[in-house]
Simulated assay, not measured.
Amino acid sequence: MEKDISMLHRLLHSMNDSSKDLLGLIDKIIASIENQKKLDTKSDVGKVERELEQEKEKNRVLKEEINEFKNDLNVKKQKINELNLELVKYKQTTNVLPPLNTGDEPQPSILLPIKITNDHIITSVKKKYWGSIERKVGLEQLKNFVEGAKELIITDSFFYCGGFSKPENEEYLNNIKEIIDPSKINKLHIITNPKNKTDAIRDEVHKIYGKKLTEAFTFDIHDRIWIVDSKKASLLGTSLNSIGNKLAFFLPLPYNDLESMKKELKKAKLLHDQKRKKRMTLHELSLDEFISFASNDTVLSKYLIGN
């Protein structure tokens, strides 16, 4: 019996020692886990710090590129200012008349390398095609087409530009009056580009036609089209001020194209003069009416070509 009790005491001591060892092992495991967490945390912080440094570097490079762009822009602005000054000087020098030619050779005209539309900087000499046979023939054809018109619509992006010199501007205004007789026309509607105009030309056209004149402005029409009394139209391959300068066609607009053009002008609200609160009216035309009206011209078939 005493032996049994002694064995139980030894077993109890052994169990106590084992539990102490187990608890010690558990403490070590917990400590190891905590250390690993600290290491992982340090690793994450380091990764974030590296990413932050990368973003800082990207921002630095971007700022350098922005500064380079600004510097380049300033250089270009300076260059533009210099060119503007040179242009002003050039405009001043072009106002000087060339010396008279005392020989038998005709005096050559001065050709400007760029188009200048402001009336106060133009020269006093004509370009070669002004007054040429080609221009006279083209203007005569246009005059014949417009003759008898009561209402006329013109789409021409450069209608108010005129010429390159004062004599050209005077001739241009005379051309307009000869083609569109102010005493016979009832309504004249000009559709043009707002940027392509000389104020002096526009003012003179307004003086010539007065309340008969209305206008609309757009950037969306390229072709030069003349519409007479809603009944016939012609496509002019160049602007009125450039007739005779280069090869260009003067072609009748087929019936379907004319009606489509009318619809587009109405849709774009280009028949309305917002400043004068006036509206140009375009009437729809049947094919029979079109043929009947066109038959008054020399060649009927040319108005029926196309779709």
Rank of each mutant, 00 (worst) to 15 (best):
L173N: 08
D229S: 01
I243W: 06
V88G: 06
T281N: 08
I116Y: 04
D273L: 00
Y129T: 03
N307Y: 06
M7Y: 13
T238A: 13
N245S: 02
F249C: 00
E55Q: 06
E289C: 12
L282R: 02
F159D: 02
T94F: 03
F250I: 13
I154T: 03
N196A: 10
I114K: 10
H189D: 02
T41M: 10
L100G: 11
K278I: 11
Q92Y: 07
K187R: 04
K70D: 06
F164I: 02
T214R: 02
C161S: 05
E178V: 13
K89G: 11
L213I: 08
E140H: 11
T298Q: 10
L139E: 06
D40R: 08
F250V: 10
P108M: 07
K126R: 15
R50L: 12
D72I: 09
G210K: 11
K56V: 10
K143S: 13
T155I: 12
D288M: 07
L282T: 07
I179V: 12
H13T: 12
S242T: 08
E57R: 13
L247M: 09
I243M: 05
F293P: 01
N118T: 03
T218E: 05
R10F: 03
K267V: 08
S6V: 14
L87N: 09
I176T: 01
D21H: 11
V88A: 13
N84P: 05
I116R: 04
G237W: 04
L213F: 04
L52M: 15
E86N: 15
K262N: 07
E64H: 06
M7F: 11
I26G: 09
S19I: 14
K37Q: 03
D257R: 10
S165F: 04
N307R: 08
I121H: 11
E284Y: 12
D223Q: 02
N101T: 05
V299K: 15
N101H: 09
F293N: 06
G46N: 14
S124F: 08
N81V: 10
K128W: 07
H206I: 14
E2N: 01
K212M: 07
M280S: 04
N186D: 03
